[in-house]
Amino acid sequence: MSAHVTTRLSLLLRIRDSANAEAWTRFVQIYAPVIHRFGIRRGLQDADAADLTQDVLRAVSHSIEKFEYDPETGKFRCWLLTIARYTLCRMHQLRSRQPTASGDSAVQKILEASPAHDPDLISWDNEYTRRTFELAAEHVRSQVEEVTWLAFSKTAIEQQDPARVADELGIKVGTVYVSKSRVLARLQKAVSEIERI
């Protein structure tokens, strides 16, 4: 009774093994917020940015077989940015229901902006890095005691005085330093792992 469409490369076929599933989960965790923020920065509302994210993720998932997700090469990230931009473009077009702008003006703009000064690209890369750290932080935080984490975050991130932090948290000053260093070490490892997946 079934009539399969044989041309479909379903998502199932593209995620070839569980290791790749891990990778792609990681991909979603890293990039979904990045795309979302890109949308926000480009003036979208939350809901629209969410749509954009969804679209881009889907678009990427259809091209999975082209890429072993390899975040180290700038190529992938750039490609993703292009997808995001393109998708955003189409969103705008379709919402305004205007005929496609002739390639000229769009091309012109892009030609004039060299990569070094492309604001999109710069912030895109920044967001990616930020997201990597955030993810690492979430991960590490879940692995250490809360007080250890707080000792770290208050000193390393919020730049508070260790002695004060020690008082606040009710621990020894020395412990604060130890905590900070330990968390730093874990963080560093986590970040490099995430970047490598």
Binding site: V28, A32, T53, Q54, A137, I157, L187
Partner: peptide, 30 residues
Amino acid sequence: VAHWLSDSTDHSDLLSKIIANAEADIHESS
């Protein structure tokens, strides 16, 4: 670390949902 983590914001609900859905999809498929 200080730089990147100093002003991180929470995800909007919508975004969280998208991420959750995508993850579920991936795992279900695999």
